[in-house]
Amino acid sequence: MKITVRRGDSLWAYSQLFRVPLQLIVDSNPNVNPNALQAGQTVDIPRYAARTHRIASGQSLWSIASSGGLPVDALPLLNPTAQPNALAVGQLIRVPSRVTSLVVQTARPYGYDELQEDLNRLADIYPFMRHRSIGSSVMGKPIPEIRVGAGRKEVHADASFHGNEWITTPVLVRFLNEYLLALTNNGNIRGLVMSPFYLATTLSLVPMVNPDGVDLVVNGLPAEEPYRSDALAINGGSYDFSGWKANIRGVDLNNQFPALWAREAARGPRVPSPRDYAGAEPLTEPESQAIADLTRSSDFSRVLAFHTQGQVIFWGFEGLEPPESATLAAEFARVSGYRPVGYADSSAGYKDWFIQDWRRPGFTIEVGRGVNPLPLSQLEEIYQQSLGILLAALYQ
Rank of each mutant, 00 (worst) to 15 (best):
Y179I: 02
T184C: 15
D215N: 15
S133K: 06
S195Y: 13
V138T: 14
L181E: 03
A150K: 12
G149D: 07
S137A: 07
P170H: 05
L172S: 08
G213L: 11
L203M: 15
S137W: 04
V206T: 13
I189C: 02
F161I: 10
L183N: 02
F175V: 04
N164V: 09
R190Y: 00
V209D: 10
S195W: 06
L192D: 01
A150T: 11
F197M: 10
V206G: 09
N164M: 10
M194P: 01
A159T: 08
A182N: 01
V173T: 12
T201M: 04
G187S: 07
G151K: 10
A150P: 00
I143C: 07
P211S: 08
E165K: 09
H156S: 12
I143Q: 04
E178D: 12
F175T: 08
T169R: 03
V206M: 02
P142L: 10
V148R: 06
G140I: 03
G135N: 09
G187L: 05
R174I: 01
E165I: 04
D215I: 06
S137Y: 05
H162V: 09
N210Q: 10
T201E: 08
T169Q: 05
R132Q: 14
V206D: 05
I189M: 14
T201W: 00
L192I: 13
I146C: 09
D215A: 12
V209I: 15
V206I: 13
Y179M: 12
G213I: 11
G163I: 08
R147F: 03
I143H: 07
E165T: 04
L199P: 00
S204Q: 03
T201H: 08
G140C: 07
L199T: 13
I167L: 15
L176D: 09
E178C: 06
G149L: 02
V214N: 06
L172Q: 12
H156P: 00
L180D: 08
E154S: 15
L199G: 06
T169D: 06
R147P: 01
M208R: 09
S204W: 06
R190N: 14
M194S: 01
A182R: 01
I167N: 12
I189V: 12
L172G: 11
L192Q: 14
L199E: 14
P196Q: 03
V193S: 13
I167V: 15
L180H: 07
M139N: 03
F175S: 10
T169H: 01
S137K: 05
A200D: 13
P207Q: 09
W166I: 02
K153V: 13
V173F: 09
R147C: 11
P207C: 11
G191I: 01
